[in-house]
Design a protein around this nucleic acid. Sequence first.
DNA 1: ATCCTCCCCTAC
DNA 2: TAAGGTAGGGGAGGAT
Length: 1250
Amino acid sequence: MSRGRSGKRAFPDDGWGGIGGYMRAKTMKLEHQFHQDAPRNIEKAGSSSTIFKGVSIYVNGYTNPPAVKLKQLMMTHGGRYIYYPNKTNTTHIIASNLAYTKIKELKNEKVVTPDWITDSIKAGKLLPHASYLLYRPKASNQTIHRYASTSLPDESGASETGAVDKEYRGSVSTKAENFSSGDKIRKDITLELKPGSSSQSDSSHFERSSTSLCDERDNAEFPSKVKIPESTDILVEPSPSEKEAKKLLGTEVSPGLASTNQSAAGGFPKSNDASFLSEFYSHSRLHYISTWGAEYKAFVNELQKTGDRSFPGRKRLMELVREDRDLEQDEHGDDEGRVNSWSSNVKGRKNDDDRVIMHIDMDCFFVSVSLLKYPELRGKPVAVTHSKGKSMPETNQESREYERAHYAKKRGTMEGFSKHDEMSGEKEASTGAKETTTCLAETAEGKQTASGDTSRSSTENKVAFNSMAEIASCSYEARKAGVKNGMFMGRAKELCPELQTIPYDFEGYQRVSRCLYETVASYTHDIEAVSCDEMLVDISNVLNDTGVQPLEFADILREEVYAKTECHASTGLASNILLARMSTKVAKPNGMFYMKDENVEEFMKTKSVRDLPGVGWSMNRKLQEMGVSNCGHLQLLSLATLQKEFGPKTGQQLYSYCRGKDDRPIRMERERKSVSAEVNYGIRFKGEDESIQFILELAGEVHKRLRNLNMVGRTITVKLKVRQAGAPKETSKFMGHGVCDDKARSITLGQETDDLSIVQRESKGLFLQMRVPPGDVRGVGIQISRLKSKSDQPVTSKSIVDMFPKRADVPKAVQRTNPDTVETQTMNESKLKPKTLSLLNFVTKQSKDSPSKNKANNKISPTKETALPRLPTLESPPASQNEVESKVAAKAGPRSKYHLPSPSQLDLSVLDSLPPDLRSQILKEYKHTDIFKRQPQVRLHRIDQASTSTGITSDLDQDVLQHLPPDILQEVLENEGKQVIKRKRKPTPKIVENLGRVEELPSFSQIDPSCLEALPEDVRNELNTAYQRKLKVKPAAKKSPSPRKQLSPLKISKRKGRPRKGSPSKIANQKLPWQRNILEALHIQESPTKAGSMERAVDDDEDVFQLKPGNGNSEIDEGVRERQDVRSDNTKEVQESSRDMEAQDRNENVKLDSGEQKAVSLGGAVTLKDVKALLREWTGTFQNPLEDDIGMVVQYLRELILEKNLEMVHHVLRGLKRIVTRSESKEWTEACRVITGRVQNTVEQFMELV
DNA sequence: ATCCTCCCCTAC
DNA sequence: TAAGGTAGGGGAGGAT
Ligand SMILES: Nc1ccn([C@H]2C[C@H](O)[C@@H](COP(=O)(O)OP(=O)(O)OP(=O)(O)O)O2)c(=O)n1
Ligand SMILES: [Mg+2]
Ligand SMILES: [Mg+2]
């Protein structure tokens, strides 16, 4: 931190304080020029030498050869030009004349005349400076002052710097070599600059107490309106001690969960602890950077809004530019070249339409900041991590190996990285061209190894040290050894035994981050925040307004940031974002690089595809499989090919990027699309109670964030990480999530909300729907999307109508399906009619709901028909899976199960609070629901439609109305009249259909909260009553309705995404596990299934809900668990499952209802024997499986599932597996995996329905 | 062709 | 021990 130093360096204290602005600007200007000039000079003259190696000059005041010239000379002859002098970083002070007082101050320094430089060059060697000492002073006050201040005791030793410089240089040079000639110039620049700025210059002048510095500036330069992210979470307190700050951080940062409980254990609070969330977040670096990143984006948004366009920084820039120009003119001769170039540049730049994009990013950000507190470690391989670096013997070999294998497979290689990050390099890079990283890494390793003694000991250490703590950031010294951000500490130690660890300094990151943004914002608001340590800046306007040159400005910024923070930033400049970012990589560390368009082609060819933004491990793997490893290769692929392989956008992006083309604009304003909170660490629930408790807390956290944004959201999504089937219970990383399957469930409310109780209720409901054994949960996340600014849509909803309108959107989907549905509905109504049922359904839905994948479902299926009510026709047909799914899922069966106890309560409360109108609507819906039972989606649709359609009343189901209590009915009718809403589509007929489904109506929460609140008590009571009735009636209703047919069973939902991907790639996921799971699942199901599964499904849910303890339910649950356990991978499938399930459910329902079912066949083959024969023929005929054929088989199996003929499914799959296994064909094995996965997914869905 | 939803992927 | 969060882009596939 700045702490120690702050006193010394406090800006006010140093001599510069008073004139800080001006002087600083001047200094920076000078430096900039130097940097820029240097490169050019180098280019021109091959006349470079190393005469001044080890010499670092600081030019004080005006000199005969102007400072600019001296810079050039130093740069071209191996010397260094110091912008911000201090005793340690400067070997000589150059001055032509000095004021007496100044001389006095500098008496202990070597002050020499410029002639020393020029003469040495002429002589071709470094001449003794003794004869060039400047004894006589003349006058240049400012300079003197400066120096004096400079001389203040600085912290770090110069020596260190020097070392660093060397290293950096080496690095740089290496990089330079890699780059193409055109870029040379830039490279050179980079080279030169790095050493100088990086190490030493700690011009104390600029430094101030870190905190104060930024703050001061803010006050002075920033628009008062705009606030910098500062406070949001963490720190930034006025002047808190670090400890306090940390405390604050922890507290503030962490979600404001008040709970202070600490885990009894005394260690890390467990997920069941009240203090868990805050404890976790206060230590989560990723949470911090995410939060900060969002804050800076908001900050930039504010900048755009505030009319303040006074850019204080520009004034200084202009002054600098003017001075430079003057200087140059005065000196004419020497600088000619430079001047010319400048002018030419200026012309080109200023008038060009082309924009100049600058990307600026802090060098090893966390390390740079944390290192401020550990200056002695500067220049050494260092990493910021929670690990203390001590060896920790204990290791979970099993989990370690399991997880390693998992990620290796997924990535295709590598290990040792956390899921998030790169793991790039080492292996992949092999392509010769690779970049600096590779080269450096290799070099470094070599060196280290060479160093010897350490390496051995390290080896031993390796064995002993296997921390799974992630490295947030590592120094460039560490990177040379192959260490990367995001890597596990244990792995890093293997690569770099001498790696030292330093702790996080979140407060410091905040501080530096703010300085960075403030500084840039003082010049322009044309910023796009990328993260807390990085941003994109369109500097075109700055250049035009001030006449400053691109690199000149870049360096001014860099120096200014360094002066304020003592942390280095690197910049990349180019004509577009892509190139600017890639240039930054070249520039790092502590450098800048301007990629000119003429050098792009050459530059890009050598780049690894992995270096392209957007190409992560997944895409890289695909490309590698295609034989493409660098951009040069990629350029050989046609646009059509790329788009076919990766999709329109991604294909185009690859096509453009690999050529260095990028037309994305700088996005200065962005609107939030979602808010979420998740925790995938430390989750170990002992039971459902704990898990629910946590869900509620997390929901509280998200809610809090939502409110802070002053927004309301309409869709709530719960995401879970569930221990993968075969994964060890204990993860390799302490309290980590290990290898998991991801599961998600979402629900779309009738209206946006920011109500805590609703968010909590729905989150809980969604969580319960997933039916995951609490003990296997490894991560939980809640997201709220479809956001709307609260201010934008203030009140409105008082009528039910208002609440539902939104659904209109949803309805679309529903409507679509509806046609079929409609009929179904009708059917349902007749069957289900019970209005009460609707309520039950509603309730039920909320609580339990989908047993997604689990076996439980299977077993359940037999018993219940409940499924029918909702899923069958109604759900599936209406919305394809999408919308329906989410909605349905939420409301539908799944919830009801677990809900039993709570759901009703919830509903009641909601109802109570509802306004009359709302109630009536709700009631209506319920009735519908009852009638139709399942298919919450339907409801939504219906609602939408109703609102939309003109004749609302007409839309309402007669049945429903009839069921309604008089008063409610009245209200409803009235409301309908009012409801003008805007349902998007749907003609009346559709509406009807929708209604059928409507039954599921969104949970109460979906209804506009305000409306609910407004409801009279009586209405509530009625609702409650109805609700209760439904509960009782339910069973019957559910069953009957379910069976409709809707679309042809064939239509069964097809999965979208995931599956396909697999096919082309050939990449095998976990085949075996899936199969096993499926098979098992099937087995389980087999027994239960058979007839009427659909209906049961619905019923089951309810049953579970109500009966849980008893009969079949328990079995179901067990089954589910087993299934989960058994179940292996397929994350993908899981996700899909929700939708699919719905779809399937619907289908099933349909089928069941219809009872029509034709004999399910595969290409006409009905019997197992025939089917197997066909499969054998299929696999034997084709070298590779065809997508369509795979789809056909899957479809066939799905139909079987709908038929409840799980036994057949099981046999077919087993047969297929045998056949494929025998074939020993990778492609076919993959195909089998795909099929199995899809089927399993379907089964799961089916189960859920049940 | 276009929209919509549900995800995966990527980045810091 | 360890603190593996979070937001946006876009592909896939269905409905229109
Ligand atoms: N897997 C990661 C990646 C990054 N970060 C944090 C720490 C980094 O310091 C900061 C900025 O990320 P960068 O990608 O900019 O990486 P660095 O700044 O550390 O290094 P570089 O010099 O390459 O920018 O974000 C992290 O915690 N975990
Ligand atoms: Mg960085
Ligand atoms: Mg960054």
